[in-house]
């Protein structure tokens, strides 16, 4: 069996926070660095604020599997309150990591996730977003933290790539580009690994 060097990522967020967008942007960025990618949300009756799940598969060759991801290498939690209602570490590899948007320390988070023994990473994505972009878009810093922790894409390449795609996306709102780039950089610097 060919080793395709597969990394599987599961995103947990709430409708409206941009977890799906972050998942799609990660797929774009990984594609641009030569990877084979899948990016897909789990669709249902979405409402603002309802829990949503999105998934990435990133590999060196084509991945055939089309099911959801039950045994992820990484889990990203865009909204900390989900730790109270969703079993976010379900199936998460011990050699992987849980990445949470939180002001808390990794040890404090560990107590909330049944003592998950792997790496726990925290970044205050909400505060970073408010400071750099001026609005609460926690997905932008969470995407950057995920890139940093997973090591799937070279960080400078990722930043260049994002700058290009933001220029395209915000051609009529150029003031948002610098804020988003600052959010990426700050999140990569501040993410705590515990």
């Amino acid at each position: 069996m060919e080793n395709i060097n597969l990394t599987e990522i599961r995103w947990h967020g709430r409708g409206g926070q941009g977890a799906k967008t972050a998942c799609m942007l990660l797929a774009d960025a990984a594609f641009n660095s030569g990877k084979h990618v899948q990016g897909f949300p789990e669709y249902g009756p979405e409402r603002m604020g309802a829990p949503i799940t999105a998934y990435n598969r990133i590999s060196d060759a084509h991945c055939d599997v089309h099911s959801n991801i039950y045994y992820p290498n990484y889990v990203v939690v865009v909204d900390e309150t989900l730790l109270n209602s969703v079993d976010v570490t379900s199936g998460l590899h011990e050699a992987g990591a849980l990445i949470v948007n939180s002001k808390k320390t990794p040890e404090e988070i560990r107590q909330k996730v049944n003592g998950y023994p792997g790496k726990i990473c925290v970044v205050d994505a909400t505060a970073i977003s408010l400071e750099t972009i001026g609005k609460n878009f926690p997905n932008t810093p969470m995407l950057a933290a995920t890139v940093k922790i997973t090591n799937l894409i070279e960080t400078n390449k990722f930043l260049q790539d994002m700058e290009e795609s933001l220029k395209h996306k915000f051609s009529k709102k150029p003031h948002l580009i610098a804020g988003n780039i600052a959010a990426f950089k700050k999140s990569m610097e501040e993410v705590l690994v515990g």
Binding site: H36, G39, F40, P41
Partner: peptide, 12 residues
Amino acid sequence: QDGFITSHGVSN
């Protein structure tokens, strides 16, 4: 094609 699975899933 399969709704959402391939219709909304992004891949190469």
